[in-house]
């Protein structure tokens, strides 16, 4: 199976700060890649470079073998790569259903079809009862789920989830974990940024560790927990 996403020597500079420096790794179809690292390690920046929010300063990103550099986010989404935002971005004055419909309209021009897709996705995240609520009034747990339902409605083949469990209680987190596993079963490749190590170990097939913008380690969960450099970085930053 070929790589669905190839990240080649990606660097991103903000002034003098290297938020990503020379990051490279591949993802194969159907896998879940965990992306971890301390706060400020450059995880969100890497998502931004991959999805065209801004182009990488150096290096390139290949999606299904296509060069993505400089491609705008809307085109990236149309090609089948979708992302959620760490700081959720609900369309506040629109209903929950309308939020998800906006995602669904990426693949159809018919409002009716979009409404059906959206209802389906809301059922997937168990929010169909909240369809008529205003998105702006939801509690954080439901905003995160809405964020996921909305990107799923764009029918991605590669999904990038940026801390969708951040700020959730254990029950809600468990719900999201199950959701991620369901999405995997449906054949969608995923890259997941998460701080909860237990969760990331459970769901990931492979893990990439970023530290100060650089790739510190890559391997399967077992290799990562026993990697001395990773242990040092985490002990160094959190204790």
């Amino acid at each position: 199976m070929g790589a669905i996403l190839e990240i080649k020597h990606v660097s991103k500079f903000f002034g003098g700060l290297a938020a990503n420096s020379d990051v490279s790794f591949d993802m194969t179809e159907g896998m879940i890649m965990g992306l971890i690292g301390p706060n400020g390690a450059g995880k969100t920046t890497l998502f931004n470079c991959i999805t065209g929010y801004y182009p990488p300063s150096r290096g390139e990103v290949l999606f299904k073998g296509m060069k993505m550099n400089g491609l705008e986010p809307n085109k990236v989404c149309k090609l089948g790569m979708a992302r959620t935002w760490q700081k959720v971005r609900p369309l506040a004055k629109m209903s929950v259903l309308d939020n998800v419909m906006v995602g669904a309209l990426c693949r159809t021009n018919s409002l009716k079809v979009a409404r059906d897709i959206a209802m389906e996705q809301l059922k997937v995240v168990r929010m169909d009862k909240k369809a008529d609520f205003l998105a702006g009034g939801l509690p954080i747990g439901e905003r995160k789920k809405l964020e996921v339902a909305r990107v799923l409605a764009t029918k991605p083949v590669l999904l990038l989830l940026d801390e969708v469990m951040g700020g959730l209680n254990p029950a809600e987190s468990e719900e999201i974990i199950q959701l991620i596993l369901e999405i995997k079963k449906a054949g969608v490749t995923q890259m997941v940024i998460e701080h909860d190590m237990k969760a990331i170990m459970r769901i990931s097939d492979r893990i990439v560790v970023l530290n100060s913008g650089e790739k510190l380690a890559e391997g399967n969960p077992q290799e990562i927990v026993t990697n001395q450099a990773v242990i040092d970085a985490y002990l160094g930053s959190e204790h």
Partner: peptide
């Protein structure tokens, strides 16, 4: 208002970056 255009217009109003990432050509 009751068309795809209307949905896209309102999405742009609510959050341009989110709209952009959901496939909307701003």
């Amino acid at each position: 208002q009751h068309s795809k255009l209307g949905y896209y217009f309102q999405a742009i109003r609510e959050d341009q970056d989110a709209a952009h990432s959901l496939g909307i050509n701003l």
